[in-house]
Amino acid sequence: MSTVVLLALTGLGLAALYFLIASGLSLVFGLAGVLNFAHGLFLSVGAYAAWTVSESWGLAPAVLLGIAVAAATGALVELVLIRPLYTRHTEQVLVTVGLSLAGVALLQSVWGADARVFPRPAWASSVVSIAGAQVPADRFLLIGAAVLVLLGLLAFLRFTRYGLVIRAGVENRDMVSALGIDVRNAFTLVFTIGGALAGLAGILAGMYFSSISPGQGASLLIFAFIVVVIGGLGSVTGAFAAAVAVGLLQQFVNYYGTAGAGDVSVVALLAAVLLLRPAGLAGKAAPA
């Protein structure tokens, strides 16, 4: 029993990371039609920015700075690189591919290829006893952050003008323009939000793994992609459900099966979902 609780909470912690990355990816893809390979870069940029000032500024301001830097990176990428290629989706994907290669190499040249030890709040290193299981408190940090982000995102999408524009744009971008709305401002906004959430995910991943490295974003990104596709492109709640499914499946199968079986089973889940429901759990049919 205690093993199950520990596995479940660890799986949910991982799911929280996936969700933070996937929700931004999903909105960016759903609205702007861009499969963003540079999303992993936003994550690493946020983590390294926070790491750099954490000694001198203290942890909380460092976290805020990391999120802000990642958000600014997202906005900048959209304005400078993505916007000039408006509607040319393949080129947009290619640019993000180039950016992910060049960006990781840039991080590597500035901070080195080796992993850096990442600080975490003292309480996150403690252990909480639940139903007989000794659960490290950092799991709750991740899960709490993800739940807050989910609620915040849903409220934003539901109750604000921009949220309305984003929801409508995910359905039919052209029609939003035909109502006299400059939908490209919403593109910049989702890139900024995606960047901020990825930065937060990078920082939390740093705390969870106790270290950061330039390639960390890329490896998390692949599972986030899988979560996005399973959840349905453009759906925040779909991404949340898929993240939970993927995180739990991966943890449990990795523990009870052979090493690596969890990762394989996640891909099998993806294949199954795509064959049965090509649009994902909650999504509309993917455009193009």
């Binding site: 309305l164 409508a168 359905e171 039919n172 035909a178 109502l179 006299g180 709305i181 939908v183």
Partner: peptide
Amino acid sequence: THRLVRDGLGYVPEDRCVFAGLTVAENLRL
């Protein structure tokens, strides 16, 4: 497109293109 529309070019497209996931009120508010 959005500039032309703001200058007073209203468009009612083929197949309506209402936003299916939004409520009627949200469609109008948008």
